[in-house]
Design a protein around this nucleic acid. Sequence first.
RNA 1: GAGCCUGUAGCUCAACGGCAGAGCGCUACACUGUGGCUGUAGAUGUUGUGGGUUCGAAACCCAUCAGGCUCCCCA
Length: 425
Amino acid sequence: MANKIQAVKGTREFYPEQMALRNFIYEKVRKASQAFGYQEWEAPFIETIDLYAAKSGEELVKKQSFTFEDRGGDFVTLRPELTPSLARMIAAKQGELTFPVRWWSFGPFWRYEQPQKGRTREFFQWNVDMLGVNSPEADAELIAVGAAFLRSVGLSPERALIYVNNRRLMDSEFDALGIVPEKRLEVSNLVDRRTKMEPAKWDSYAFDLGLNQSQLDGLKDILGNFDLWKKSEELTRLFATLEALGVKEYVKFDPNIMRGLLYYTGTVFEAFDTSGSLKRAIFGGGRYDNLLADVGGQPLSGVGFAMGDVVIGIILQEAGLVPEFMPTPAPVLVTLFDESLWMKSFELAAELRTAGLNVIAYPEPAKLQKQFKFADKMKIKLALVIGPDEAEKGLAVIKNLGTGEQVQVKREALVNSIQEALKNA
RNA sequence: GAGCCUGUAGCUCAACGGCAGAGCGCUACACUGUGGCUGUAGAUGUUGUGGGUUCGAAACCCAUCAGGCUCCCCA
């Protein structure tokens, strides 16, 4: 172990079992996206640092992203998020795209952070966005895509919920408390931190920000008022739409949801596991109105969300919702009796593959016992044996490894027999 | 960027200053044309890495790497 070169800190190694989980998530994400007509797309994995510096602030980019100088002396970064790339690509073809644009993507991202449970430096992220429609009904569609995903992986509303709030509603509530617009960001951070801090500390933090006692009391009233959404036309329409879309049971109004991002302007939402060990968000998103203008496009409103693969992967495993891992995609093993019948077995395997079956041929002579043990570990359903007897008579043995039964069949009938046996296996 | 915890066989862990162990897994045999179950036997190792203290270190100290928890951050 001493001289082994280790994987880079925070990177992911996908052994087949983990790869199966990643692909499972990918499949569900693809289905949820496509059910609503979203198109799959992808952006570069490497971008110039300027793309992020413009929006996120240089400090953040330098501290929390993988940034390096390329051979030409340009500073590039492994993408820490997708939205700026999306904004640029949309802006570049703004004149020729058919709006509303509905796009989804699932790819790798990197952030230079301290790895913890649910957080790695390399991760995959599902992004879903709709651009060109600015309405609570469109916001509801995005939430419905997320809810469709949760439902499809077996996370019921008892286990996972999407909490919704609205920035404009909160801003007007802040205004009513006499909190000036310049303080909104700080107060948002304060709200964000409420569940993480002790009440007394939170209070003194609020005073540090310059809030007075009546403003603090008012803020607490707001944050405890789960009927506040009724004052917002946007949220009223949003919830009506969620009901029509059949996902209302997954969504709850929560005035404590703010999201750190500067660019959200209206609806914001975050999904959480309500009973697992992780307190991290499953996915989160919202409406952004100014993103395209920031990269030189015409003003265009959008709504979207993102989900990392790490947190949802842990939740699915803890909830026992990951399908049983199949070690091999081949349900059939052609055993190899001895050296003299080696090529006979390989010919048979090739024949079965031509018929469309996934087949493993044991690669070298070995005791049948060993070959069957291998088949068992790989959870192979059928083992085929061609020994001297079968070879001579033009037969093959099919053994069903689930039931232990085995039959001799003619070579001509083999493909059909296997297909029959696989239906029941 | 800060604090705390952890690192021993392939895996999960024990030994906590005095011979490095167990369970599972692995290999062989029972069963030379057949897996799972059972029984018997066997092999595991630079105790993460580098240094120090000590007659003696897996254990104590320092450094370092990796993982976890918390703070920070969370685009």
